[in-house]
Computed example of a mutant assay.
Amino acid sequence: MKSYIADSKMRARIRSAAQSIDPVLSIGKNALTPEFTHSVEEYMEKHEIMKINVLKNCDEDLRELGNTIAERSNTELVQIIGRKIVLYKPAKEEKNRAF
């Protein structure tokens, strides 16, 4: 998979920006469905950063879950902190990119 994050400084800036945003989606016991993946893709068309909340009733490994979501939605896993997954995908137009 292609990496969108150029270096550790860029990753740090994305992580810093992710602190101020709220989770957009939540994953529960049904985990990954095609509808969930579609929601991620749709959101990432308009935003560069996304935070996902993983509910306690989700039994899957968080790292594996984050990597699977990133792979299916063509985004990059930035970090997992607590039960939150942060994803990144650059804006299509370079003038709209924040990172």
Results as ranks from 00 to 15, higher is better:
Thr37Pro: 01
Pro23Met: 05
Ile14Trp: 02
Lys29Gln: 09
His38Ser: 12
Ile27Asp: 00
Gln19Pro: 01
Asp7Asn: 15
Ser20Tyr: 04
Asp7Ala: 07
Asp22Pro: 00
Ser26Val: 02
Thr33Val: 05
Gln19Ile: 04
Ser8Pro: 07
Met44Val: 02
Lys29Pro: 00
Pro23Gly: 00
Ile27Pro: 05
Ile5His: 08
Ile14Val: 04
Lys29His: 09
Glu42Asp: 14
Arg13Glu: 01
Ser16Leu: 08
Ala17Val: 02
Tyr43Arg: 07
Asn30Ala: 12
Tyr43Thr: 06
Tyr4Gly: 12
Ile14Met: 01
Ser26Trp: 01
His47Val: 04
Ala18Tyr: 06
Val40Cys: 06
Glu35Gly: 10
Thr33Gly: 02
Thr33Trp: 12
Asp7Pro: 10
Ile14Tyr: 02
Pro34Ala: 07
Ala17Cys: 04
Ser16Phe: 05
Lys9Tyr: 13
Glu41Met: 14
Pro23Ser: 11
Glu42Ala: 09
Pro23Lys: 03
Ile5Trp: 10
Val40Met: 05
Lys29Asn: 06
Asn30Arg: 15
Lys9Val: 10
Leu32Ser: 07
His47Phe: 12
Ser8Glu: 15
Ala6Thr: 15
Gly28Arg: 04
Ser8Phe: 14
Lys9Ser: 12
Leu32Ile: 11
Met44Asn: 01
Ile27Thr: 05
Ala17Lys: 12
Thr37Asp: 11
Val24Ser: 12
Glu42Pro: 04
Arg11Thr: 00
Tyr43Gly: 05
Glu35Asn: 13
Ser39Cys: 12
Ser16Asp: 11
Asp7His: 15
Lys29Val: 06
Glu45Thr: 09
Asn30Trp: 11
Ile27Met: 04
Thr33Cys: 07
Arg13Asn: 08
Asn30Met: 14
Glu42Val: 09
Ile14Ser: 03
Ser39Phe: 04
His47Tyr: 12
Gln19Leu: 12
Ala12Met: 08
Gln19Cys: 10
Met44Leu: 15
Leu32Asp: 05
Arg13Ile: 03
Ser39Met: 13
Ser39His: 02
Glu48Pro: 04
Thr37Glu: 14
Ile5Ala: 06
Asn30Asp: 15
Ser8Gly: 04
Ile14His: 01
Ile21Gln: 01
Ala6Cys: 13
Arg15Met: 13
Tyr43Gln: 02
Asn30Thr: 09
Asp22Arg: 13
Glu45Gln: 14
Glu42His: 14
Met10Asn: 07
Leu32His: 02
Ser8Leu: 13
His47Lys: 11
Ile21Leu: 12
Lys46Glu: 13
Met10Val: 10
Ala31Cys: 11
